[in-house]
Structures are given as C-alpha cells and as structure tokens.
Design a protein around this nucleic acid. Structure first.
Lengths: 143, 143
DNA sequence: CTGCATCCCGGTGGATACTG
DNA sequence: CAGTATCCACCGGGATGCAG
C-alpha cells in the first residue's frame, strides 16, 4: 500500500468514469484509485462529522469535542491532523494562556463538504427504503 | 453504542442538514446518523467498486471478480450480500449447469451510484491539490 | 485548554482450502 | 462456476493517564 504506482496522467479524469472506449474493464486503476482516495479521506468514522461541524466557521478544539458527541480526544486530534494533512482544514494556534486553537475549513474542505452533503441528502431520502429492504432480507434469511 | 436510540421522526430530513433553528449544534443525532448510514453502505473497502462495476448492467460473479482486481472471493461474496440486503443490488440465479448468477443494480443502487460518482469526480479534480498539501505537510513534519 | 503515549480489544478483510 | 468455512494478521479506535 506504500507503492500506489504514481500515475502521471491526470487528463480526462472525470469522463473516464463514464466513457469506456472498448469492451474492457471500466474500473481502470485510476478510477479505482480515486474511490480509494475519497475513502481514505472520509471513509473513517469521524472525518465527515468534523468537517460538518466546521461548516459555520472557525471552531475551537474543545467546542468540536462538544459538537461531536461520542468522539474521544484521541480520535479528534488524530482526525484533525489527518484533515489538516490533506489540506481540508487549517489549524491556528493563538499564543495565549490558556492556549486556544481554532480549526477552520479551507476552500478544499468546503467543496468536499458540499459534495458530501449530497450524499447525506441521498441517505435522508432513501434511508427508510433501505431499512425496508433490510428487514425484508432479514425476514427471508431468518429461516 | 448498541442502543442507537431508535428515532421515530423521519420528517424534514433533508432540510435538517442545512437549516439550523437555533444556535445549538447542527450535528443533531439525525444528521450524524445519516452520515453513519452512508458510511455503513459505502464506507467499506469494496462496496463502491462493486457498484461501479455493475454500472453497465447485470454482471456475473466471476466477471465481477475479474473487473475488480485484488478482491478476494470472500469479500466479493460478503459485500454483494450486504449490498443485496440494503436493496442496492439484485441477485438472480439461473438454474443451469454450470451455475450462472447475475448481479444487477436496483434503482436505489443506480441513484447511489450517480451520487457517488460526484464524489469520484471531486476526487479526480482535486486529488493533485490534495497530494500537494500532503507533501507540504509531511515535509514540515519531517523535522 | 490542547494534545500526545500507552494499552488493549473487536472488527475488517486477506489467504487458503473445501463444497454443490 | 459460485460460493462457504476457517484461520489469522492488522489496525481502527476507545479508555486512561500524562505533558506543555
């Protein structure tokens, strides 16, 4: 997982998903990698929640901890660092006492948020439908 | 964490994400739950790849295995069953010899695909930007 | 207040071998 | 061909305690 075969072609990336020239596979390395990249960004347990909590502007560490019920300090710190590394949030430490640190969404983070929100909307629309399918399936399986 | 506090209100789900009545938290239980629901659906390692591979129509088990490099039989079976349970794909077994089984996207699955594709597009657009940030960050951190 | 270090447990998923 | 079953390594992530 450390190799990742650095792709050089960034061209025509979006169309690659839909237009497939021949009869061969459409999940060509590149496309699959983009999926993986997203999953690495937001596939974990807390990233999206944190990003969403930053929607309204710069927020302090402790405020984030309050906004996101159930998150541990460890995960908050870790995920924030990860988000920062990916350029989705910025970290600003004010040299005061007691220390104050604010996290904020970058433009990149904001753009991701809006995209992710679409997913959340989808879930909101369909989640009862999904539940129904699950129950049907479980009923059938429970022989 | 096993309780999950079964919500009874499915009302006004989509607006809940953007409109926040008061000054309080916007990640109200419901919204967070929708995020979690999505993550359960597509947050794993293979779901999205499988869904994408089904884009062109019904596909056989072995064909899927070929289309998705690196997936194990175990994970292919498991993930397909999960997708089926959630009503995203259908499984059709033809009573022939040798056996033939085809998986296909449901309308629900298709709708999710298009939403997920938006995320993939985002990743395609921004991934070089992300890489840049990562390298900068790592360079700074590598003291 | 903000954050790292450590311990530890459960789940995810890979490898492999076997069945209808 | 289309799975099922078993074993096991890895790591995400919770709890707790300490530090700047």
């Amino acid at each position: 997982m450390s190799g990742k075969t650095v792709r050089t072609a960034r061209t025509r990336v979006r169309t690659a998903v839909r237009e497939v020239p021949g009869p061969c596979a459409h999940w060509n390395d590149e496309d699959a990698d983009f999926i993986r990249e997203i999953l690495d960004l937001v596939g974990d347990k807390w990233s999206v929640l944190i990003i969403g909590s930053l929607e309204r502007g710069p927020t302090r560490y402790s405020d984030l901890a309050d906004l996101i019920p159930g998150i541990s300090q460890r995960m908050l710190t870790l995920t924030l660092k990860q988000l920062q590394r990916n350029g989705l949030v910025t970290r600003t430490a004010y040299p005061e006492v007691p220390p104050r640190v604010e996290y904020a969404l970058t433009e990149l983070g904001t753009s991701l948020l809006s995209t992710v929100l679409a997913l959340a909307a989808w879930s909101a629309e369909r989640h009862c439908e999904i539940r129904r399918h699950q129950q049907e399936f479980d009923a059938d399986t429970t022989s």
